[in-house]
């Protein structure tokens, strides 16, 4: 099946700063593809290149297996960095311009405004909008003309918690209608909740990419405690399958192979004449994993 987007060895520098370094990955059709990375990791630069507002120093990309063109961009709905509209025009007039450029009619303008809850304010000038309303209008504009792909850069920026939840639901719903979604975010939580695939960027380097459940798989950890912690540590260290032992607040945090279960740890301790005063299974948070990946 054709890829929606292929990125091959894209590099870009701003003076001495390497914003992107030899980045390659592919976005399969029907996915919600998250581009994850801390601030300044090159997410927006990458999206800017893919939409032809920035020039790559090296590398190529293709949408729908065709070389990039304005024609392919007309099948993509995008929200890049900030909502960009004519301040002195109303929401409807702004969307009419966007629809004309996309070579679509005006008939779905009310539809998209309804989807983002802006229908009541459709005739107000853009400059009177709040930050969250501007963001909603940008999302409405991206939805014009039933695009095959949506590209969102930090789509929940400036929205209140209810708005964030609404946009998440909207993204899921659009994806279930068969639209592929590429979104950049620094919020791991957001990516974890809605994305099927992820690429992690750090200072312009692609750290890894692939399906979320493989790349961001959470590792289990086991927390144990006993009267004599030092002795416990010595004993546990000799147990097969234990990779790492970290003392935390009067207990030990064990990183182990996936097949190790708490009862096996318990049995091993009893066999070695130690009675555990505490035994708990802990999910290592994705947050921690993300920090590990993006820190040195």
């Amino acid at each position: 099946m054709e890829n929606i987007l292929s990125i091959n060895n894209i590099s870009k520098s701003y003076g001495p700063v390497r914003a992107l370094n030899d980045v390659s990955f592919e976005v399969p059709p029907g996915s919600v593809f998250g581009i994850l990375g801390p601030n300044g990791s090159g997410k927006t630069t990458l999206l800017g290149i893919l939409l032809d507002v920035l020039q790559a120093d090296a590398g190529t990309y293709s949408w729908f297996n065709n070389p990039a063109s304005s024609e392919s961009r007309r099948q993509i709905g995008s929200l890049l960095e900030t909502p960009n509209f004519y301040h002195y025009l109303s929401a409807v007039d702004n969307l009419k311009i966007a629809a004309a450029i996309k070579q679509r009619g005006h008939n779905d303008i009310n539809n998209v405004l309804e989807k983002v809850n802006l229908l009541q304010r459709k005739d107000s000038k853009f400059q009177t909008y709040s930050l969250g309303m501007k963001q909603r209008l940008a999302i409405a504009s991206a939805l014009l003309g039933n695009p095959r792909v949506l590209v969102f850069d930090e789509p929940t920026n400036g929205l209140d918690p209810a708005g964030i939840a609404e946009i998440r639901d909207l993204i899921r719903q659009l994806n279930s209608e068969g639209i592929t979604i590429v979104m950049a975010s620094h919020l791991l939580d957001e990516v974890e909740k809605v994305c099927t695939h992820v690429a992690i960027l750090k200072r312009g380097q692609l750290l890894l990419s692939g399906p979320v459940n493989e790349t961001l798989r959470s590792e289990d950890q086991i927390e144990v405690s006993a009267m004599n912690l030092d002795h416990l540590k010595q004993v546990i260290a000799s147990m097969p399958g234990i990779k790492d032992i970290k003392p935390v607040n009067g207990s030990l945090l064990l990183s182990c192979d996936n097949n190790i279960l708490p009862e096996q740890v318990n049995k091993y301790c009893i066999d070695n004449s130690i009675v555990l005063s505490h035994l708990a299974m802990k999910k290592k948070s994705l947050e921690t994993k993300f920090m590990e990946l993006t820190n040195n």
Binding site: H87, I101, K102
Partner: peptide, 21 residues
């Protein structure tokens, strides 16, 4: 210059104009 100030030059291209258009 309005286009640059509002960044609508970018938006026009993102929406499907070529830079030349």
């Amino acid at each position: 210059t309005n286009e640059y100030q509002f960044k609508t030059n970018r938006q026009n291209v993102i929406d499907g104009w070529s830079r030349l258009q």
